[in-house]
């Protein structure tokens, strides 16, 4: 049963790395992708900790529904923000 701890610590490290990436990535869309990766890794951790029903809802909400909400919010606010305001995006994406 000691192999359980190896898997637990590995997935915990991935959760921590995804959280740090969500904070540290300057690009707004990239931060949303890091949040989606956090939801996916957290699903694996919930299965390991013996909660498959929580893992069901986390797989749908944390990995899919929440990033889609963020992307819709970013897309709707991009058309309204003034041109020189910084939306936190990369330079190459702003011409499109």
């Amino acid at each position: 049963m000691s192999w359980f701890w190896v898997l637990d610590y590995l997935v915990l490290a991935l959760v921590l790395a995804c959280a740090v990436l969500t904070v540290a990535v300057r690009n707004l869309n990239g931060a949303v992708m890091a949040l989606s990766a956090l939801g996916t890794v957290l699903t694996v951790l919930f299965v390991i900790l013996g909660a498959p029903d929580v893992a069901h809802s986390e797989a749908v909400v944390g990995a899919i529904a929440l990033p889609v909400l963020y992307l819709v919010a970013i897309g709707k606010s991009r058309t309204d923000v003034a041109r020189d305001a910084n939306l936190g995006e990369e330079r190459s994406r702003e011409q499109t």
Binding site: A19, V32, G39, L49, Y70, A73, N86, L87, G88
Partner: peptide, 21 residues
């Protein structure tokens, strides 16, 4: 950035789920 602030709130919610499970 306001959207980044809401993202921080989502991170705090994820920490709460992890603590409960």
């Amino acid at each position: 950035n306001l959207i980044k602030i809401v993202m921080g709130l989502s991170l705090m919610e994820a920490a709460t789920y992890l603590l409960m499970v």
